[in-house]
Amino acid sequence: MKKEHVEQIQKAIKAIEERQIDNIFFVACGGSMASLSTGEYFISKDTAVPAFVYTSNEFIHRSPKALGENSLVILRSHSGETPETVEAASFAREKGALTIAISMEVESPLCQNAEHILHYNYKDGSDVIDGELGIFYTFLFRILKLITGNEKYKRAEKQLENLGSLIEKNQEKFKEAADQFGRKHKREKLIYTMASGVYYHQAYSFTSCLLMEMLWINSNAIHAGEFFHGPFEVTDYDVPFLLVVGEGPSTSLDLRALDFAEKFSDKVEVVDIRELEYDGIDPDLKDYFGSALSGPVLRLYADGLAEHTGHPLSVRRYMWKMEY
């Protein structure tokens, strides 16, 4: 990892150490919120520190009562220019919270509004460890180690060195299946995604940012644990589902939903996280790395749709083109 990134993470962790942190808020919009939700999942699962995820605008308007000088607020915006998130950083500082911004743009308004910056490289030839996944997971593992004292997070940080090669291996492994998915579903106007646990956030990101935003395909992210509490009534032979079977404590929820969906739909595609390559990863750390690997794998399924529909992922109707 580059020296500048090491120093940024060390300064942020030192700031956390020097304050009493009673709760942690993860604040962002869209895909950035989905990525930060991974942090909330593991903080809530592995520690007793209350953690919350907010979309930036609601964070401001709801003004959580627990937000104050003993709060840590972690914000993210890829460009650092998302207006709601920039405002959320200012709002959190006004409440006395410790604010840490994650972005690719150091000089962005978000980074200027936050006390500490975690900058990641983007499309500059850097390897994964200096990219958004490497920076975020290093920071997350440091926080978990700080709170719990558990040595496994030190091992996890060390094993992040394998992340780049694992992404390449797993994308190669799923490349053909993803292309076939695009070929089979190129005429679909609606595709549901389903997952649970930490993978639900990946399903949400895939639904909102890839299917709906980039491909203009109607969709909804269904939590596998909620499938039987309403959504399963839409299941029929011609209704497509992309179902992520996770690696972790909620796998049984995914398998139950999968069993039902495959009985009544002829269009069920499965991305089984348990089939990923985990070379160099300790068995007790698979849950953490599965969540990091699932995003790059799912991206291939959007690429497959883009290829076979002739609809580039870069095309927008409204975003960046008008005031809204």
Rank of each mutant, 00 (worst) to 15 (best):
S32G: 09
E115W: 07
I43C: 10
G131A: 06
N70F: 02
A97F: 02
S103Q: 05
N121M: 11
R62C: 08
Y41S: 05
T55A: 11
K145T: 08
S56P: 02
K145E: 15
A88R: 00
V106H: 07
S103R: 04
I117R: 12
I43Y: 08
R155P: 00
P83V: 04
K45C: 01
N57Q: 13
I102Y: 08
V49R: 00
R76K: 14
I117K: 12
V128F: 03
I129D: 04
I43T: 12
Y54N: 02
A34L: 03
G30A: 09
S103A: 08
F42R: 03
M33F: 08
F91H: 04
F59G: 01
G125Y: 09
Y54K: 03
S63I: 09
N113A: 15
V86A: 06
I102E: 11
S32L: 05
G39V: 00
N113S: 15
E81Q: 13
A66I: 11
G96M: 05
A48V: 09
A97P: 00
P83A: 13
P109A: 07
S56C: 06
Q112C: 07
R155V: 13
H116D: 01
E81K: 15
E58C: 00
H61I: 09
D124H: 04
A48S: 12
N70G: 01
Y153T: 06
K154D: 14
A92G: 02
T55S: 10
E151N: 11
P50S: 07
D127S: 12
